[in-house]
Design a protein around this nucleic acid. Sequence first.
RNA 1: GCCGGUGUGGUGAAACUGGCAUACACGCUGGACUCAAAAUCCAGUGCCCGCAAGGGCGUAGGGGUUCGACUCCCCUCACCGGCACCA
Length: 852
Amino acid sequence: MRAAARGADGGGDDRAGACRSRAAAPGGDGITEPLRYDHAHVEARWQRFWDEHQTWKAVRSTDGRPKKYVLDMFPYPSGAGLHVGHPEGYTATDILSRYFRMRGVDVLHPMGWDAFGLPAEQHAIETGTHPARTTAENIATFKRQLKVLGFSYDWSREIDTTDPGYVKWTQWIFLQLFHRGLAYQDEALVNWCPALGTVLANEEVVDGKSERGGHLVVRNPLRQWMLRITAYAERLLDDLALVDWPRGTLTMQREWIGRSEGAEIVFAVAGQEGKQIAVFTTRPDTLMGVTYMVLAPEHPLVREVTTSAQRRGVDAYVAAAARKSDRDRTAAARDKTGVPTGGFVVHPITGQRVPIWVADYVLGGYGTGAVMAVPGHDERDFAFARAFGLPVVEVVSPDGQEHTHLDAAFTDDGVAVRSGEFNGLATAACQAAVVDKLEAIGRGKRTVTYKLRDWVFSRQRYWGEPIPIYFRVELDDPRGDPRRGARHVIRHDQPIAVDERELPLRLPDLLEYRPGDDPAGPLARVADWRFFQKDGRWFARETNTMPQWAGSCWYYLRFLDPKNDAEPWSEKAYDAWMPVDLYVGGAEHAVLHLLYARFWHKVLFDAGRVKHPEPFMKLVHQGMILGEDSEKMSKSRGNVINPDDIVREFGADVLRLYEMFMGPLDAVKPWQSAQILGVARFRDRFYAVATRELSDAIDADTRKKLHKTIEKVTRDVEAMAFNTAISAMMVFLTDLAAHERPPREGVLALTLLLSPFAPHVAEEAWKHLGHERSLAYEPWPAYDETLTIDETQEMPVQVNGKVRGHVTLPRGAPESVAREASLGVAGVRAAMGGKAIRRFVYVPDTIINVVV
RNA sequence: GCCGGUGUGGUGAAACUGGCAUACACGCUGGACUCAAAAUCCAGUGCCCGCAAGGGCGUAGGGGUUCGACUCCCCUCACCGGCACCA
């Protein structure tokens, strides 16, 4: 396949005249006159050529050459079409893919569509158009827009997460999770909006009302599918050491996982035999300073510890907390609220009674949902104690002395005081001693807690992968038909996996996508789809669907073997290309997508389906491109740039060059239309120089510049410093253009260097320079190290740190020579003013500094 | 509030490991070509003083380390992004 591409001729209809259609310089003689460049014509022709010759088909050689898997985060094909932010990362990976091919590396560089998603469903609700149709149209638009940019994707591997052939394997992976006990059902609190008949995400809820429409939202417990990602917390944390990712992203993942070491301490409830409350604390050394206990409002023991005298207050407080969204509950972070329960626990060491309060500053979902409050040494507990007049006791002292008054919580390490047998111990030692004691008396143990929570994996939506699970249906009347409304009970407590041979489980077509009033989602209404009979018994399908994350959790694996119908990917395909060597995408996915995909990968690792503990070896985030006003691009601001417009006016090569020339790939940078002219001129100047009459000789100076340029561009491409690589090529082009007849050797090399950045113009020039074949697999130019180093070096001479002159010395000249030469410079002598030299700093080939 | 990032000409930016601050590009000024314009090409362009030679200042602000700091350390300010009572 590749041989065909490599051996193919330059193809097509082109003759000089075809690409000079706009040249027609009046009076030009047409022979030495440089050619004008018609980007629309040339780019379309090369894109057709690459397609026809399958130039970018990824083929793994058997000759032991290296491979690179270069992956973009695949887009959600929105109705708005491509945005200038998309081509930024895509151009970067394309440059590297093309560069690697020229270095003799096998490259897998695929593209596909993350095509399930809310907008298509929303559109269906509003217009009745089937989401599959909207999705197909959007994909067509995106694909057309990407193709005109000339990216070297292997389109034969294109995938679409909504394709039944893909859904089949997403469901298959879900079943692997299910069979391994990692997918389970639980009641989870969700934001249910009865008026909209749907469940809303946290960010869609503002002040207890829906963002759209302002309808009431209630927090209802709803049966949900959960994935046990917490079982992988430790490995997700530890294996971050194996990857080459941006530091900030690693930090965010670590904090999201939120590992915390401490102790679980058990307090007996006073007067209630056998009842106890466990707390988690990172500071067991402050145990002797506990003055009260706090339960989260949703803690299961709240009712039981509440005395009848406090019941009304507690019930009201708990009910009010349940109405608040997570956002609201944490927004008013400063004012502490809470109520006493009237109940007490017994301190495990002193035996003293400690009052139990309920307060929503304690979170039900973290740790044990209860804390031992130590106001002397925790800021939140201190604020709460102040607000409610609870006692504050110092048990950790900065200086080992007891202090009678605390103005604020002392949260640093110190020395234990007022702590009985633990007095005088430093914080670390005290923690160990307290936990040892608790373990000895059976009242506590060392534990590790994570902030990471299990992943709510079901959505009450239509446009997602159906969860391949069904349940037994129990009918009051055994001959009844649940599709016709016969009374029945669905045994959700006994989930049954759909047989793998029956996958994919397809979505039914709907006429009405509106969610309706059933929180089980639109699929619950499709009785003919939902209920089915097997062996004379009735069953009901799961009507929840998977979240959009599902498809993107494993798409990099499907690219390996996208047409395989017998398995998700073959071992051979896996061995050929995995792991992903470079992954480029937005920083907004720093946590969720990247954590979920790593989790699935580890599950597949345990199932023996993948062989590397981590999927993405190197990760790079492209920076956001802002509008010309330096604001985020948005329709409402009217500052959106459409890549189609840029391509039409200047061509794909110019858009690619511009986006790479703007600045460092990972920097946030504003779009500046005026700057595009600079790279457009560069492209046109390059083509003009390449099509001039060339010289077969090359002078020594240009030769040196050539080799320095190759060295610089090579280093910069490897470091993904594309802006400076382009700058180096601009400088070299200016050098070439200064020759009446530019040296052919230099033009040829520059054409190859430029080709990953601006492939169309480079191919066109390459052909003009007499080549029959595409340059896609030409060897990358090599440089001679010795030619990149000059024999002499001009160096600044400073006097007391200020530059006062320059000297040119042979490389590595001895200090004595440097000294003599510098002191001979008039400006240096003048600046020294006859003063004695205190020190002579000489860094060979770099700088001279005379200190007087 | 916490965490992370950024701050360099009129503008986007460059400066490898502490070694000539401002490469490359835009813009601007002047010139060439042209009847003219566009396009293209050439030259200049950090700020201040000066006719000039030359000098001084200059990488958000202040301090420090160093022969030497955009780069390392401390403090302050501004902007951007993320997270928000995680015991």
